[in-house]
Design a protein around this nucleic acid. Structure first.
Lengths: 170, 170
DNA sequence: CTCAATCAGTTCGACCATCAGACCAAACCC
DNA sequence: GGGTTTGGTCTGATGGTCGAACTGATTGAG
């Protein structure tokens, strides 16, 4: 928990959110899940995160109902509806970072499949709606840098990829 | 910084965002700034945060250009344009927390002054636009609980209050 | 089927952040 | 000018995070 336990006495929904997704690494793990990453080792390799912390975070996300752990052998992690509902917040935070650091050259571009591009406000430039993540493709943008990482997830993102479908492709 | 320094080698705008606003307490401090809190002691009393940490966070937010520190005597903290641009992300996270914990009874309701209410997607139910925070009023909602806190900021929020105007009123 | 490699963690000790509380100097109030 | 408030800093105790080593189950190759 990112907040002291006595923070339960704060009457604010943002604090409630941060108790679940405010810890170090948690939002980056969920971002990878939206992109389709499902395996422990892929998350670990892509995030350069300590295995101990990744294990703790995944346990917490499953306990909080944002992820499910499935499979009898090596588990796969999938977003629940509660997890999927986080997409607008995640996208808004990403856009804020993009606008601050590389305003003219986005690292990633999201495409509403068969329709238009996703604008900064999360609306499709084609239909004007806010597509659900499953209807989106992530494309490398002009600000992307392919030289920094060689893990399977980073490699898989060098070409367009439908969100929520397995990454790396198997 | 919430992420290891070597995370500079990650090619992702979300990571960039989290390096600025991902630390414990930072988003709650900014939330208070949107509500109009400007003084060190008001933040400290409302958040129940250690003074040392609050001091560190405010320094970082000023250095990152999200807040300005003004006044020759006791300083006032104000949001910059970069800080104000965070509003959609902050609102989206708040709505996610509200939907998860108290779906039918929001703790706070935001009103586009003279127009309509703010929907879950940040659009006004009246005009359909996404108002900037300065055009919004925060009202206590049906899920608000006035019994938990008695600091000046909490008291000031028991009645409708225009965002970005001084809180507590002086 | 056997054996090695991979996967999904757990454990460990070093290090860093956060906490509550004490302390302090400048600003403000009378 | 003196006392109070404000806005911090400092300190020792506690808890989180780190990289690296270790482990046991699963999977794949032959």
């Amino acid at each position: 928990m990112p907040l002291g336990t006595d923070y339960a006495r704060q009457d604010c929904s943002l604090a409630r959110s941060l108790e679940v997704v405010g810890e170090r690494w948690t939002l980056l793990i969920l971002r990878d899940c939206f992109w389709g990453v499902r395996r422990f080792s892929d998350l670990q390799a892509h995030l350069d995160i300590s295995r101990a912390v990744l294990s703790t975070r995944l346990d917490a996300l499953v306990a909080d109902g944002l992820l499910t752990r499935s499979g009898d052998g090596h588990p796969e992690y999938h977003l629940t509806d509660d997890g999927l509902a986080l997409w607008p917040a995640l996208y808004a935070l990403t856009q804020w970072g993009e606008q601050r650091t590389t305003p003219g050259a986005p690292r990633r571009v999201f495409v509403h499949v068969g329709c238009g591009r996703l604008g900064r406000d999360g609306r499709c430039t084609g239909c004007g709606e806010s597509p659900s993540p499953g209807d989106l493709e992530i494309h490398p943008g002009p600000g992307a840098d392919f030289t920094v990482r060689d893990d399977p997830v980073s490699v898989g993102l060098r070409t367009p990829h439908r969100l929520l479908t397995p990454l790396p492709a198997r």
